[in-house]
Amino acid sequence: MAMNLSALSTEYIRVTATTRAAGSVITPAAPPRFAFLATASSPGEEDWLLGEWADRWARILIGPDGGATTLEPGEYQVWLSWSAGAETPVYRCPGSLRVY
């Protein structure tokens, strides 16, 4: 997921996410959570922001006009997590988000 985003832009960051159990697709009841980190460290509880499900994508609105957060110019690792029954997977998305 290599993506470029202007710091002046407000738009959705989308990550394809599918969950399966015994071959059947699971629809998570809880919203996905995103973290945007400028370092390679794992996210702490204070780093997570709530996103939403849109079909097979987890998405979150980023930017100065009503986004969940506004990111300063730089390069970020994007993390995604959600609750699915007893499991709470946490993934670092491939690539990075570059805000210019």
Rank of each mutant, 00 (worst) to 15 (best):
Pro73Ala: 05
Arg14Thr: 10
Ile26His: 05
Pro32Asp: 09
Val78Leu: 07
Pro31Lys: 08
Phe34Ala: 07
Gly66Thr: 05
Ala2Leu: 06
Ala40Thr: 14
Gly51Leu: 07
Leu71Ser: 05
Glu46Phe: 07
Glu75Ser: 11
Glu52Ala: 11
Thr69Trp: 00
Arg98Gln: 06
Gln77Phe: 14
Glu45Asp: 12
Ser6Gly: 08
Pro73Phe: 08
Glu87Pro: 00
Ser24Thr: 06
Leu49Ile: 12
Trp79Asn: 03
Arg59Phe: 05
Ile62Asp: 07
Glu45Gly: 01
Ala54Trp: 04
Ala22Arg: 10
Thr88Pro: 06
Pro94Cys: 05
Asn4Met: 04
Ser42Asn: 14
Val25Leu: 14
Ile13His: 06
Leu97Cys: 09
Ser83Gly: 07
Asp65Gly: 04
Leu8Tyr: 01
Leu5Asn: 04
Gly95Pro: 03
Thr16Glu: 10
Gly63Cys: 12
Gly44Leu: 07
Tyr12Trp: 05
Pro31Tyr: 03
Arg56Gly: 12
Leu71Glu: 01
Ala21Phe: 07
Glu72Cys: 01
Leu80Pro: 01
Leu37His: 11
Ile26Tyr: 04
Ser6Ile: 03
Ala22Tyr: 03
Ala22Gln: 14
Trp48Ile: 05
Pro89Cys: 08
Pro89Asp: 15
Arg59Thr: 08
Phe34Lys: 03
Phe36His: 10
Ala35Ser: 09
Asp47Asn: 14
Glu52Pro: 00
Leu37Ser: 04
Glu75Met: 05
Ala22Cys: 04
Tyr91Ser: 07
Pro32Glu: 08
Leu50Pro: 03
Thr27Ile: 13
Arg92Phe: 01
